[in-house]
């Protein structure tokens, strides 16, 4: 474990806490894409299959349980909670995310570390995570104004993978045989997708103005 990876995991956890806070405090999920939340639940379920087979560390196990539980809780909340589900922007959240699932799964069948179910699902979860934010970014562009908590949620979600890139560089330099091309390349693509959001987020922060994404 290195400081970059710990910072990445804590930033990721923070993004989930901010999202839970927004939904719980405002009893509303307006501006949040249910499709992105479903994709994240799928990412964690596909990636953490080894939760019960490979024990890495207490920290690793606890974080996996927290990520799976929180992502499922958010999907449950947005689908079934009587009060929250009314504020879901159903007509704005129209990204065809099934294409993302199909495309990344086919890619995982072709590009993986080993042609075993667990490795294919792991690669699938890595590729899917890279594109999972797209429905959310599209929703933000459509809904015009972005409330602070939602903006912070997306910002932390993008920042966490940027910390992971620093972690991979650090591990590549310090560990003799560290290579994790699938996660590295996918992580760079993922962080790149946030680039324009980061740009507008920084502009709004500098001008102390409301975050607006161009339609």
């Amino acid at each position: 474990m290195n400081i970059f990876r710990l910072a990445g995991d804590m930033t990721h956890l923070l993004s989930i806490i901010v999202l839970l806070l927004k939904i719980y405090a405002t009893k509303s999920c307006s501006g949040i894409s249910l499709k992105t939340q479903e994709l994240y639940a799928l990412v964690f379920l596909a990636r953490y299959l080894d939760l019960f087979t490979d024990f890495i560390s207490v920290y690793n196990t606890i974080m996996k349980v927290v990520f799976i539980a929180s992502s499922l809780a958010i999907v449950w909340c947005m689908r079934l909670h009587p009060l929250v589900k009314r504020s879901y922007d159903k007509e704005l959240d129209t990204f065809r995310h099934y294409f993302l699932i199909g495309g990344t799964f086919v890619l995982a069948l072709v590009l993986n570390e080993k042609f075993t179910l667990q490795e294919i699902l792991w690669a699938f979860s890595i590729y899917l995570e890279a594109v999972a934010i797209l429905p959310q970014l599209v929703l933000l562009q459509r809904s015009g104004n972005v409330d602070n908590l939602t903006g912070q949620y997306v910002f932390f979600l993008g920042a966490y993978r940027a910390f992971y890139i620093l972690n991979w560089i650090y591990r590549y330099l310090t560990e003799p045989r560290f290579t994790r091309w699938i996660a590295c390349v996918s992580g760079i693509v993922q962080t790149g997708i946030y680039a324009d959001f980061f740009y507008y987020y920084f502009i709004s922060w500098k001008n102390n103005s409301k975050l607006k994404l161009p339609a």
């Binding site: 990636r47 667990q118 792991w122």
Partner: peptide, 10 residues
Amino acid sequence: EGQSVVKDEL
């Protein structure tokens, strides 16, 4: 060899 790298990252 060929043992898939243990996934120690989240």
